[in-house]
């Protein structure tokens, strides 16, 4: 293993982490502030991806696709919140799990009825196609660098929103004491709807960005949903900072596990095929092992933000 390969894999880990962060930021807000487990968060990701794919195919522009996908994802999120989920904030987590699981089934099948069972195609926008050789001998796709950049910008914007703006102040206040906020005359219902819409928008953004590199298909939401839950649990529910650190950690563990574990095990086992098999099994499990270990030593995640 060369030093350059190590660098390249680190970049890969970083890119996966940023992608997960986009998903995790919205989920952890909804979770931390409304105390709501939303399994349908993956559906917003899928909706974002499908709308972006459909619109960019129709208009020929990826950017218009993304621009349409964001408000659609946010609108679907807010509609779902108003129609069904807001009644569940005070309920048991299990009721929330059941209802949002129902939403997953609904959205998956709806997508299949609208767009058919086949995966959709999204091209990389021409401006971002091609690769640059940041690391000698390893041309890196520009589009992946764009994702990293966009994710970091979103992280900064989120921080600004929460620390600097009035809405952010209300979000923080609502998280620590919702009765007090509503007693002060703030429309807490509306605030929650906005937060929910924001979360859905971020998930939609992640979905739209994922289109050119991943398959836009039914069930894509569940694949990433579980990873996202791992991220926010590792990071600590409700903490944006935790989500960022958690996402990068999951990205690193997953990528290094896949990249280096089999080679490492070849040094231990004599039979290379045994080493490959064992390495592949362990790396499939690596993020779950990470989550279990974190929880065993820090039962409330790395950065517990709110009660």
């Amino acid at each position: 293993m060369t030093f350059y390969l190590f660098l390249e894999q680190t970049l890969n880990a970083f890119q996966l982490g940023v992608m997960l962060f986009l998903m995790a930021a919205g989920l952890t807000l909804v979770f931390g502030i409304m105390n709501m487990i939303n399994l349908a968060h993956g559906s917003f990701y899928m909706i974002g991806a499908y709308v972006a794919a459909y619109v960019s195919d129709a208009t020929g522009s990826f950017f218009i696709g993304v621009a349409v996908a964001l408000p659609v994802a946010a609108a679907v999120g807010m509609a779902v919140e108003i129609i069904a989920l807001r009644r569940l904030y005070k309920r048991d987590h299990l009721d929330q799990v059941l209802a949002t699981f129902g939403l997953i089934l609904f959205f998956n099948e709806l997508t299949s009825i609208i767009w058919g069972p086949q995966a959709l195609f999204v091209a990389i926008p021409p401006v971002f196609s091609g690769s640059v050789e940041l690391i000698p001998g390893a041309p890196y796709p520009i589009y992946r660098l764009v994702i990293i950049g966009a994710g970091l910008i979103v992280a900064l914007l989120m921080r600004t929103l929460i620390v600097k703006t009035r809405t952010g102040m209300l979000i923080r206040a609502g998280a620590s004491n919702r009765e007090m906020v509503s007693a002060l005359g703030i429309d807490i219902d509306r605030l929650y709807t906005i937060i929910f819409g924001l979360g859905a928008l971020l998930a939609g953004l992640a979905g739209a960005f994922a289109g050119p590199i991943l398959a836009t298909e039914i069930g894509m939401g569940e694949n990433i949903l579980i990873l996202t839950f791992v991220v926010i649990i590792v990071g600590g529910i409700g903490s944006i900072r935790g989500a960022l650190i958690g996402a990068l950690l999951v990205g690193l563990v997953d990528t290094y596990g896949r990249a280096f574990l089999p080679q490492f095990l070849r040094m231990i086992f004599e039979d290379p095929s045994v080493a490959d098999g064992v390495g592949a099994s362990i790396s499939s499990m690596s993020i779950y092992i990470l989550m279990a270990v974190v929880l065993i030593f820090r039962p409330r995640g790395l950065f517990q933000a709110y009660g």
């Binding site: 839950f229 499939s284 499990m285």
Partner: peptide
């Protein structure tokens, strides 16, 4: 752990077993 963390850690163990048996 407890609460949501309990939900997720039990899920983690089940997923580990799932991938173990798949391979």
């Amino acid at each position: 752990t407890s609460g949501v963390y309990f939900i997720m850690i039990t899920l983690a163990f089940a997923q580990m077993l799932f991938f173990f048996f798949v391979s």
